[in-house]
């Protein structure tokens, strides 16, 4: 089974994302910021990560840069999922090694589509 880590400081978003991902057949774990997510990756590297940008403690872009430095940190497919939708944010995310980018708000069709573009399958 493909293991997903949902990283978002909003409990509501985590809950919605979990529900959608479980419906698509993924196993889902949650983290509430970048620091929490690093810990989660150190204990079990997920196959894919849905990543918010603005979070306390450590934001999404700092997290993905740190992740990509780690042994095996190149492996997870990372899909940003954020309200930040301008050119410079997207460029920075791609440069840091993000695989796909979703603008909030999003729906199930978009999520399914974007995961398949990122090469993530349940």
């Amino acid at each position: 089974m493909t293991n997903f880590l949902v990283v978002d400081d909003s409990g509501v978003i985590r809950k919605i994302a979990r529900k959608m991902l479980e419906e698509l057949g993924f196993a889902v774990a949650e983290a509430c910021d970048g620091v929490d997510a690093i810990k989660a990756c150190e204990s079990a590297m997920p196959d894919a990560i849905l990543l918010d940008w603005n979070m306390p403690n450590m934001d999404g872009i700092t997290f993905i840069r740190a992740l990509r430095e780690k042994p095996e940190g190149e492996a997870p497919k990372v899909v940003f999922c954020t309200t930040e939708s301008d050119f410079s944010h997207i460029s920075a995310a791609l440069e840091a090694g993000a695989n796909e980018y979703i603008f909030k708000p999003f729906d199930m069709d978009t999520l399914r589509d974007k995961l398949s573009m990122a090469g993530v399958a349940a």
Binding site: S85, D86, F87, I90, S91, L94, A98, E100, Y101, I102, F103, P105, F106, D109, T110, D113, K114, M117
Partner: peptide, 23 residues
């Protein structure tokens, strides 16, 4: 809209073929 460009369009293609226009 941001919603429309993510339907079917990989982000790399968005960056290559589109320009931001307000939202």
């Amino acid at each position: 809209s941001a919603f429309e460009v993510q339907r079917g369009l990989p982000v790399q293609k968005l960056m290559k073929h589109f320009e931001p226009d307000g939202p």
